[in-house]
Design a protein around this nucleic acid. Sequence first.
DNA 1: TGACTATATGAGTATTTGTTCATATACGAG
DNA 2: CTCGTATATGAACAAATACTCATATAGTCA
Lengths: 131, 131
Amino acid sequence: MSVGGKQMLEAQQCCNEVHQEALNDCTEQLPEVVVERLAETFKALADPTRLRILYNLSKRELCVCDLASVLGMTQSAVSHQLRYLKALRLVKNRRDGNTIYYRHDDAHTMGLLQMAIDHSSHVSDEQGVME
Amino acid sequence: MSVGGKQMLEAQQCCNEVHQEALNDCTEQLPEVVVERLAETFKALADPTRLRILYNLSKRELCVCDLASVLGMTQSAVSHQLRYLKALRLVKNRRDGNTIYYRHDDAHTMGLLQMAIDHSSHVSDEQGVME
DNA sequence: TGACTATATGAGTATTTGTTCATATACGAG
DNA sequence: CTCGTATATGAACAAATACTCATATAGTCA
């Protein structure tokens, strides 16, 4: 079981010939909590509705009503997603009378979104030329 | 109920006072196909197992067996996720005898991942100082 | 050929998720 | 107070998901 003197990471043996060299290059793993956090962030961006909400909030502050109108969705559906985004601190809101305005609240995540959007437009351009 | 009149660009009316100025700032929307593509990309990164797979493949080429060992997961679970990632062209593979080696195949998505990882470590540092 | 190995895959399943519907809450104007 | 409006929320439900298990596939080696 113990092969050498060093730390060996055997989590589970699925084949006899475990490539030790490969495992040595992978001793450094992302901490569990970091992985969960990353997945959580990307999951927030992994839904078309939330993407559209954040995209529009990247332009300007908007109330629930306007977002529902722009997205062509029910107020309830939008509100549920806003709660989701707010729990992750990706958006925040302010009240003005009956109206509640939302805006983005996480520059890093918005940066990820913007980067992905920029790339998608580049890809579109290239494909437009190619095909 | 039905207010006699005209509605110009409204997808759905959730409240009477639709803020026209807000809607004017949101005339430009991401194309449906782009939104779906973005969501698809982020969804690939929205799962801890796939994150760890891509993270390890960012270091070096690995076979299914080694990945399973490093992640402490069954060969089947890893293989299913690799198929998922391959369908999205985020990874590609090569065969060497019985062994199939995987590596990453989408610089842009790996860039998104790296950016998110870098940020998370910065945040950790700051929090480490604060608390 | 046949045993052995690494990987792929279909079915089944428990869990998560995004929406709808009905209703609750909070605020402003009478 | 009551009424009207904007938003929030709980329950329910269908669809998507990530795993396990059993088995299939494809290569090596004797």
